[in-house]
Design a protein around this nucleic acid. Structure first.
Length: 455
RNA sequence: GUGGUUGUAGCUCAGCUGGUUAGAGCAUCAGAUUGUGGUUCUGAGGGUCGCCGGUUCGAACCCGGUCAUCCACCCCA
């Protein structure tokens, strides 16, 4: 019998951790509901076909695939072997795997909308809080199983939603004490316009992949990467002027206008951003327009968001989102535009932990512990315990009549503020001892007094 | 997927250029204290030194492999 262990990148959560996670999740859920989003849950796994091709080439590699059952069936042997050959060539085969763990919440949501669009009332606003899985190598802030909290709305092109989602970010993160978070926004149309200005829309992907790394690898290396992608020097010059854009949102827009305003795509991006800014201009949130923000997921078509952890913590992105014009089109239902955001709970947890942002009174131990002084005594105690519980007071009874010393220490360790002692002498007088462990005060009460005592 | 780091008691870690019986603090349990905790004191239990192999008279220590971990890259929440 070998020692038990966990698969890499997964974790158990003890009581203290679960309480803190609930604190985050409850904050997010409450805000989602207050903004009018409805709950949705989808299965842990989907048909592999539903997921593949939606997250880009790298994304596909990170999907956890589930091996089919019954591969040892002799009748399937030749198919299975043929499927295995495909796998050896880096392709997946439905003869070997036809299901996979979900990789995010957006694609399953799009699948749900595509399957149920006839029944849904649009605009449909849903939130979803569930684990997702990625076959990445674990490291700091990166787990193989982690929770996402998504809010999406489909069926409307209104920038009202981009606006309220940005406010939602602000509300949740400030409620959690993450006041130093940074919201960055950009618009895919601007990136497209940039590619077009450079000479070819097909350069969109290599350009965005390269410039997205600007703050990480620096200007020189971005330049190198663009050159290695065989972009002409003229195009690279244009990109460098684009990358030089920075400043206040208004100033960034002005500079973008000069560079890309002559292109229809550029105008689209600029006008969306202006509309968005007008919606939120009196809201408390701060943001930065970052023309280099690209975001990997290739289904975004409009505004994109990224939330970075406070600069004092090296954690990178704790949330992201954006508009996608045609996600359900992938599932055969065209013309259902959508926009959504996501919170990375596990990273938010890590950031809050390093910043010490969790409230200290998050634990909710029982209010009272009945000591156990013997079978007879505890049988008198038990009804009192149940009465307290029925009144909504969390209480416990120690299971064995061990030394009081030990029962005191148990109460203390669990953070239980009151203990009640009912032994032979209390039975004789019909009373009970109630002791406050913090103050050390103890009083003798009748059962009726005890049940009405303020705990 | 690529590169590196670290694996010693439940936890955090010592352990000298390889040397006899592997240590500390915390935690646990017992006693001092049979119905009154927190402090203190005394004592006890707990180890295949991640695993497998190699070098050596001798390995926790050196070498190889493997697994796990953390970190970085790729990518991402």
């Amino acid at each position: 019998m070998s020692k038990p262990s966990l698969p890499a990148g997964t974790r158990d959560f003890g009581p203290d951790v679960v309480r803190k996670r609930h604190y985050i999740l409850d904050t997010i859920r409450e805000t989602f509901q207050r903004y009018g989003y409805q709950p949705l849950e989808t299965p842990a796994f989907e048909n592999l076909e539903t997921l593949t091709g939606k997250y880009g080439e790298e994304g596909d590699k990170l999907i956890f695939k589930i091996l089919n059952n019954g591969l040892d069936n002799p009748e399937k042997e030749s198919k299975v072997r043929a499927g295995f050959e495909k796998v050896l060539q880096g392709k997946s085969s439905p003869d070997l795997t036809e299901r996979a763990l979900k990789y995010d919440l957006t694609i399953p949501f799009a699948r749900y909308v595509a399957m149920n669009h006839g029944q849904l009332t649009f605009p449909f606003k849903r939130y979803q809080i569930q684990p997702v899985w990625r076959a990445d190598r674990p490291q700091k802030g990166r787990y193989r199983e982690f929770y996402q909290c998504d809010a999406d709305v489909v069926g409307s092109r209104s920038l009202l939603y981009e606006s309220e989602l940005a406010c939602l970010y602000h509300e949740v993160l400030t409620a959690l004490g993450l006041t130093g978070y940074q919201l960055q926004v950009n618009h895919r149309s601007l990136l497209l316009a940039l590619a077009e200005w450079c000479g070819d829309r097909d350069w969109l992907v290599p350009i965005t992949v390269a410039i997205d790394k600007l703050d990480k690898i620096g200007l020189d290396k971005v330049k190198l990467e663009l050159e290695s992608n065989r972009l002409p020097a003229e195009a690279i010059e244009k990109i460098l002027t684009y990358l030089a854009i920075e400043g206040s949102p208004a100033s960034v827009l002005d500079q973008l206008e000069k560079l890309l305003g002559h292109l229809p795509e550029g105008q689209k991006g600029l006008s969306d951003l202006r509309t968005w800014m007008a919606y939120i201009k009196d809201q408390p949130l701060t943001y930065r327009i970052d023309p280099t923000l690209a975001r990997g997921l290739n289904y975004y078509t409009g505004m994109i968001f990224e939330v970075k952890a406070p600069a004092s913590v090296s954690m990178g992105s704790i949330g992201g989102g954006g508009r996608y014009d045609d996600l359900t089109g992938l599932f055969g239902v065209p013309d259902v535009p959508g926009v959504g955001i996501s919170f990375g709970v596990d990273r938010i947890y890590d950031v809050m932990e390093t910043l010490n942002l969790f409230p200290t009174d998050i634990a909710d131990p029982p209010r009272l512990l009945f000591f156990n002084l013997g079978i007879t005594e505890s049988q008198v105690t038990f009804p009192l315990l149940q009465t307290l519980r029925s009144k909504g007071i969390a209480a416990d009874l120690y299971p064995e009549a061990v030394k009081l010393d030990k029962q005191f220490k148990y109460a203390e360790k669990r953070g239980i503020p009151y203990v009640a002692i009912l032994g032979a002498s209390e039975i004789a007088s019909g009373t009970i001892q109630l002791k406050n462990l913090q103050t050390g005060t103890q009083q003798t009460l009748t059962h009726a007094e005890f049940l009405n005592a303020k705990l």
